[in-house]
């Protein structure tokens, strides 16, 4: 009797102990997240102004703003998306609609993308430096930085687009086939428009990944903080600007805080928007089924 009672108490206390641990863990994570946000706000909010966003940096970034850096970031992003999107979406359409999931070719493509997704970003930087900057002779330029990023974005763009296409109910394909639509017409007129929100969400995630990247751009798009004149000019991305200000520029902390604030605000907006898109799309799909 005594023994079973002791056992019951032990179970009771263990249950409580685990519960307390779980709540403590959650509180810690929340606290750290808030700590980071408050730190960034306190350090950079006062420095933030319209002029900071449009002026070019002066005195290695200690004075002036981040105008030219935002332009470089956007250009790098555009190059990366321009190269990665067509490749990623054609690959996804082929994998989802044309080849069977178990075929050799499909498995090969999927496996290579899966490995690519795990490659550390600094290795992409090494490859970009060796291939785009030196072998293709693009030098330290926005073009080579953007193309390096494009390689990095491929896996995430393909996997989100493929999942989006696969989530379209089969009844659509059946109806299209019954109507005698060609596969091309089915894909372009029917499946892609339905999957568009999923493609857009993947695109937003890709943008978020690209804007946050530093290591892959270090030796490909370079350090120059002037306003870029063409795609072959070197241009400094926003994330790289934060890195440079905090590591190499004494007294660069306040503009670094402000730049970090801009970057985090941008990414939070992109991510929240992507989440909303996915959520509303899933809701619509369950209604359609």
């Amino acid at each position: 009797m005594l023994k079973t009672n002791a056992r019951r108490w032990r179970h009771f206390y263990l249950d409580r102990l685990v519960q307390i641990f779980v709540y403590l863990a959650v509180l810690t994570v929340c606290a750290v997240f808030l700590w980071i946000l408050v730190d960034l706000l306190r350090g950079g909010f006062a420095h933030l102004s319209w002029n900071f966003l449009i002026e070019s940096p002066r005195d290695a970034g200690r004075a002036g703003g981040i105008g030219s850096i935002l332009v470089s970031t956007m250009l790098i992003l555009l190059v990366a998306l321009g190269a990665a999107l067509p490749l990623a979406w054609t690959t996804a359409a082929l994998l989802a609609e044309y080849v069977p999931a178990t075929s050799k070719f499909g498995m090969l493509v999927r496996y290579s993308l899966q490995v690519l997704a795990g490659v550390p970003s600094i290795v992409f930087g090494l490859f970009g430096n060796a291939f785009f900057s030196i072998y293709l002779g693009l030098g330290f330029s926005i073009l080579s930085g953007g193309l390096t990023l494009a390689c990095m974005l491929l896996p995430i763009l393909v996997s989100t687009a493929e999942a989006g296409l696969r989530a379209v109910p089969d009844s659509y394909r059946l109806s299209a086939a019954a109507l005698g639509m060609t596969r091309a017409a089915t894909l372009i007129r029917l499946l892609l428009p339905i999957a568009a929100p999923a493609l857009a969400a993947g695109l937003l995630l890709g943008i978020g990944r690209a804007v946050a990247e530093t290591a892959a751009l270090l030796f490909t798009s370079g350090y120059v903080d002037r306003m870029p004149g063409s795609l072959l000019d070197s241009g400094r991305a926003l994330a790289l600007h934060i890195f440079d200000l905090s590591m190499n520029v004494p007294g660069g902390d306040v503009p670094a805080y402000a730049s970090a604030l801009v970057l985090v605000a941008m990414l939070l907006c992109i991510n929240i928007f992507a989440m909303q898109l996915v959520q509303s799309w899933q809701r619509r799909n369950t209604i359609l089924e």
Binding site: L87, A88, T90, L108, S112, L116, T182, L187
Partner: peptide, 29 residues
């Protein structure tokens, strides 16, 4: 059906290039 096979060709080309990126990285390293 001509456009069909054309589209399929384009899609396959995209997929092959995507798969080659990995190979290219290994080769250059």
């Amino acid at each position: 059906r001509l456009t069909d096979s054309l589209l399929r060709g384009i899609l396959s080309m995209g997929a092959v290039i995507s798969a080659l990126v990995m190979l290219l990285i290994v080769i250059f390293l």
